[in-house]
Design a protein around this nucleic acid. Sequence first.
DNA 1: GCCCATCCTTGACGCAGATCAAACTTCCGG
DNA 2: CCGGAAGTTTGATCTGCGTCAAGGATGGGC
Lengths: 248, 248
Amino acid sequence: MLNQQTPTLPRDCGACPIRHRAVCAQCEAEELEQLDRIKYYRNFEAGQTIVWSGDQMDFVGSVVTGIATLTQTMEDGRTQMVGLLLPSDFVGRPGRSVAAYDVVATSDMVMCCFRKKPFEQLLSVTPAVAQRLLQMTLDELDAAREWMLVLGRKTAREKIASLLSIIGRRNATLNLGAPAGKMVFDLPLTREAMADYLGLTLETVSRQISALRRDGVIVLEGKRRVTVPDFDRLLDEAGDDSDGGLPV
Amino acid sequence: MLNQQTPTLPRDCGACPIRHRAVCAQCEAEELEQLDRIKYYRNFEAGQTIVWSGDQMDFVGSVVTGIATLTQTMEDGRTQMVGLLLPSDFVGRPGRSVAAYDVVATSDMVMCCFRKKPFEQLLSVTPAVAQRLLQMTLDELDAAREWMLVLGRKTAREKIASLLSIIGRRNATLNLGAPAGKMVFDLPLTREAMADYLGLTLETVSRQISALRRDGVIVLEGKRRVTVPDFDRLLDEAGDDSDGGLPV
DNA sequence: GCCCATCCTTGACGCAGATCAAACTTCCGG
DNA sequence: CCGGAAGTTTGATCTGCGTCAAGGATGGGC
């Protein structure tokens, strides 16, 4: 991950890669300016913990580039990932001063942070931001509920297939259009992180990935690069309706 | 469940039992009046399905009395409960016309419904409603994430203890003050519904409840009435921090 | 080049919880 | 009062995944 670039921060919202998907998506010029006034960028390195559960948290923000995870840990060390944060996803909760989860950077990251107090102030007077935040929160709630089905009722193989199809689908919508036919992407997570997401052990994750490879559902190139020859086949393995995902 | 009462509907918001906890909690008189104009009450019987996943849904609303469940079902019949709706909880999603989950009345229920279109209209011009809805959605998201830890990482015994402690805590905050010491409540769910919530089979639920009873963690009176002699002990069995729940 | 850390894979074995099966309790309708 | 349905309990057995253990790949630092 030796990244030479001194990340040139997009000081200008107009050029921001997440301008039209983040919490600021629906803002007009003047609202954007208000946000601009309370924003600042922060970089995080892969592996770095951004916030510890229980810590004071004086900012909220958006993932600009990179990937982070939201995890809960029990006293005896068992951990469960409860969210995967991708570019444009929102971090933190207005109205709460203490973090409820650990937030960890999985890759090098750039975050666009807002000081919490002014952001909350802005929320109460700027409907565009509040409405967008509501939309995004409802989407996250749907994702969490979809994940409850995965955790509660799916087999290990179905869990892996579900994770792959979610990552694949998101990649597809980001790059091209509809997910279909062949598809290639990189796994942004280690086997252990996948296990934490899926409520499995890393050994089981490894075994099931091997099994899916043996059965031709996926093709691996190294440990991380995945090719899905037939996306419908993968959805089938995930136990999902082949029409895929939630109705909108 | 032979309920004689013809439920006298609280036409008046001022006398509504959920006035200060539902989506209307932060409304002033005039906003309340706007809501009042688009609201209507509906009754449901225990066991009745309120909405089918995939159905058109032309209303949103609040649970006034009674209990409902939100469930997802896979093609082969495996089902997972993804939400438990108690009085004041919100049903439906603004901006979506098709239901994503089955909503089933677990007891006799009264719902305060709003026609969807006018409600969405109102959302965009009434910050008090939009803000309250955001708060409630964030709370639900936290609950869903707490439940992901339960589903993904807890043992059957811990799952049962977690469910009991959640129901107990909610009962306590509804009736008295802080949950502590002795506590009595009724289980609002069948063993099967508990199994669907916990990602278990109903046999395992039954066995673990018996085990908790044998070990003195709970006392049963009939199948449904539960006494918890020592709430901290129950929290301990649930694997939760004894200070209990999310920081606020 | 070699070493070491991190990540991953694979095997052997055991157990928590699923599955299959049967019987009990409660309660409502006739 | 009896019969049957719905819900619950308990037992016997099976199995998917966890646990423990060993070894293989990869890549960065020296």
